[in-house]
């Protein structure tokens, strides 16, 4: 699979220890999350690429096209790296200074949509946290989205019709598959 942007996650032997340490220190934040429901991208049915900060996806089984931007793209790439997505609400809540309940709810809705669209399935946990990359993750998150905008799944059905759309004249300024009138 070709990906325009891939993130590397060092898997040193101390990762698990650091992660446990993180959980203990931030126990109040992570306690409310349903930890360790681990997701992975539903390959080979789903193909995806990150281009200019936007994740584009195709479910080859259903023929539906999807895109995510901002925090949605961030969460997707987090899941793709086989990290435990369920720790993200606590990181987000801390980074954006919001209540964990609100953030948790938004992220769960987003991930539930990914599950219902068969874009992700349950997968193995790869413990790849350490204290450095938790700081990195927060920094990346704020760089992608400096203010909190709940993650959204943009879905486009009828791929056969979409492929026939003239991508110069029948689309708005954001480009295919966004039709001019919509």
């Amino acid at each position: 699979m070709v990906r325009a942007q891939e993130e590397e996650h060092p898997k040193d032997s101390q990762a698990a220890v650091f992660f446990c340490f993180y959980l203990i220190v931030n126990f109040d934040l992570v306690a409310q999350t349903e930890l360790f429901t681990i997701m992975r991208v539903n390959t080979p049915n789903v193909v995806h690429e990150t281009i200019d900060g936007e994740v584009i996806l195709l479910n080859l089984r259903t023929g539906n096209y999807y895109s995510f931007e901002g925090l949605g793209a961030f969460i997707w790439n987090f899941i793709d790296s086989e990290a435990g997505w369920s720790t993200l609400p606590s990181l987000m809540s801390k980074a954006y200074n919001l209540s964990l309940d609100d953030v948790h709810n938004d992220v769960e809705l987003f991930v539930a949509k990914l599950v219902s669209e068969e874009l992700v399935v349950e997968g193995p946990l790869v413990l790849d946290f350490n204290s450095d990359n938790i700081t990195d993750i927060e920094a990346q998150m704020l760089e992608i989205c400096n203010e909190y905008i709940p993650p959204v799944v943009n879905k486009y059905s009828d791929m056969q019709d979409l492929l026939l759309l003239d991508p110069i004249h029948d689309v708005d300024q954001k480009g295919w598959p966004q039709k001019k009138d919509s």
Binding site: I51, I56, L162, L163, P167, G175, W176, Q178
Partner: peptide, 20 residues
């Protein structure tokens, strides 16, 4: 450039069509 949005759309369409 203002054209980058539509150019990106053409890229997205090509990417989708090629995967199919």
């Amino acid at each position: 450039d203002p054209l980058m949005g539509r150019l990106k759309g053409i890229y997205r369409q090509s990417w989708s069509s090629n995967h199919i």
